[in-house]
Design a protein around this nucleic acid. Structure first.
Lengths: 348, 348
DNA sequence: GTGGCTGCCGTAAACGTTTTCGATCAGCGG
DNA sequence: CCGCTGATCGAAAACGTTTACGGCAGCCAC
């Protein structure tokens, strides 16, 4: 309850001096500063964030936009939890606060984001867990408010994006399979409208090309990140005649990978004996099933930190370039890590 | 950028009238109100939350305290993600905002929570995902700031708690096993210092008692919610001579349940043929494994909503009882739901 | 005509900071 | 003694709201 005035009275100085002392301005003697800090400590003084934000015109808070609807897998993916943790910790280290934005892209218009950001005078906004809702967010990215999207490509004057290095992760997975002796490697993809899905496919194709492997049409099966589609794709692969059947599958998502493993089991194929499986994401279930799933893990903490870094770079650049060209939309990429478990053995 | 003054000038009224019109005060004529609302719409006026919070002494925001450290399972449980969604949506419906508090119970002192809450003039705080850190939070609960804890019993003048009805859930699980014909039912527990763990055990014991089943000492195995402990406990159960082996196990957590299922598989027991398993929590993996795990699902959305309700009740009661006795710590309980999958068949 | 009530509205004082614009004072060279 | 510089600080104006208080008109009752 102690305000800056109380401190001023207590120390016999003016409120201006107190403010300067507490904010580390140089034009206050070491003596007074020490005294002020001590009494602040003693009285348990805490500055009012509202007052501070009001006068400074900024809040030192960033909003996290996370549409948690139920419809699609992307919005509730367990991965988002750790991503949120990463964002939260990075923000903490940067002395910023995190506001989980109270907006629902379906119920309110897309403009609601921007207005809420203005209401709170947010430093910027991080958008996560969106599934193709990009068009609805155009106004946000174009607005000049600093914002970064996770796992989506966006453009805007002060907009950036971060993502795991899905291409490299896919390449590593395929190389690993190749090193184990596998030569007939198939893939199950995610939906083409999601950036991670296409990057994983591109990485897969790149690695297959570099390694000089054949890639029959049947070796690319299109899923939707859900388990059922993984099961369906797995069934189709299992039905191929043995000589033309893959000995390994790179699946663009763990949930689909588990579905595929069930399909293989139902088809009488042994994993990893008859067919190896490597997934993507390292969801919790990957380590809980038998055989445990080898998978490409995203470093969600690093990804969250990267999102915060990119965002704060835009924030600080505020004064520097007022009207510069929109930056290129090459996303920042965070490295992935192949975690090797039991679902892929030696090939052939 | 348009402020309340701009509106006033535009409409030819005073700022007071504008404020009243926009906040629905009755002492303004329908005519002026309509005009003001229209120009507000036209100018894209949005009130500054900082200014508003500053003058009203409250922010219409509640803090969510979530220590996301890595050490214990409770803190990163996938369940927390949906809980957070539930909280967020309930807060949204109540017109409140959500601030994810920037505090780390390990690095900063426990007082930091309170100070942050005061800085932001939060309406209250919801604490989730804590693992026995309760002592560190005593200052918070005793402070008089409205707060509710999820899945922990706390006391304080304006503190409450919510939890899933773990007892009833356990009872339902056991009854279900009994209805399937099982008579020798064991359990694997969680750590005794966690409230949900003890409630699930109590429910188990209650149901077993009511059904008149025998409960040898070996039928209660103590785990720690992690998979490895589930495996160990499952192994011990599997080692019992067939005549004294349980035909079903109620496991207090899905992760342990999966561990137990692996143990049974390794011991040559068929699930559900030789031994049925029912878990608790309905984590994502439960539906992804084979056989899919029958489990007691928590309604995390309802739980989040209950947390918000309880909190806001305390907030509104601010003026009513100034110095009342601390309310009893009977937690609000949210019903669970048994989701039946393949891991438990007929008994005997 | 007086008093009072009601409906509507304006004036101005808060709320707790930050920051601009000086003010004061000491020291110092000339 | 004068003017200048640097260090340290105070007075006061913001920032954008909400709200207590009072005013004014109109109406009704006496």
């Amino acid at each position: 309850m102690a305000g800056i005035k109380d401190l001023a009275r207590e120390c016999g100085v003016s409120v201006a001096t107190v403010s300067r002392a507490l904010n580390g301005h140089p034009e206050v003697s070491v003596e007074t500063r020490r005294q002020i800090q001590q009494t602040a400590e003693r009285l348990g003084y805490r500055p009012s964030q509202s007052a501070r934000a009001l006068v400074r015109g900024r809040s030192d808070a960033v909003g996290v936009l996370w549409d948690s609807g139920y419809e699609t897998v992307g919005r509730r993916h367990p991965f988002l939890l750790s991503l949120l943790v990463g964002i939260k910790q990075a923000l903490n280290d940067a002395g910023r606060h995190l506001i989980l934005l109270n907006v629902d892209v379906d119920r309110q218009g897309p403009r609601a984001y921007l207005e809420t950001a203005r209401e709170f005078q947010l430093d910027g906004v991080i958008v996560m867990g969106l599934d193709g809702h990009l068009s609805a967010l155009h106004a946000l990215f174009e607005s000049g408010l600093p914002c970064v999207a996770v796992d989506a490509e966006v453009a805007g004057p002060r907009a950036g994006c971060v993502t795991s290095d899905n291409r490299a992760g896919a390449v590593e997975a395929v190389r690993h399979l190749h090193a184990l002796g596998h030569r007939r490697i198939a893939t199950i993809t995610g939906p083409v409208e999601l950036m991670p899905a296409v990057h994983r496919l591109e990485g897969f194709e790149q690695a297959v090309g570099e390694l000089g492997l054949k890639l029959p049409d049947a070796f690319v099966q299109n899923g939707d990140f859900f388990m059922d589609s993984g099961y369906a794709c797995g069934t189709r692969l299992a039905k191929l005649p043995k000589s033309r059947r893959p000995t390994a599958v790179f699946v663009a998502g763990d949930e689909m990978a588990l579905g595929a493993m069930h399909a293989f089991a139902d088809a009488g194929l042994d994993v990893p004996g008859d067919i190896a499986v490597v997934g993507f994401d390292d969801i919790e279930a990957a380590g809980l099933v038998r055989p445990a799933l080898t998978t490409v893990a995203q470093d969600s903490l690093a990804l969250g930190a990267a999102a915060v870094d990119t965002l704060l770079a835009f924030v600080d650049k505020r004064a520097v370039d007022s009207a510069e060209a929109t930056p290129p939309i090459t996303p920042i990429r965070t490295p992935t890590r192949l975690v090797i478990r039991q679902s892929c053995g030696a090939g052939r």
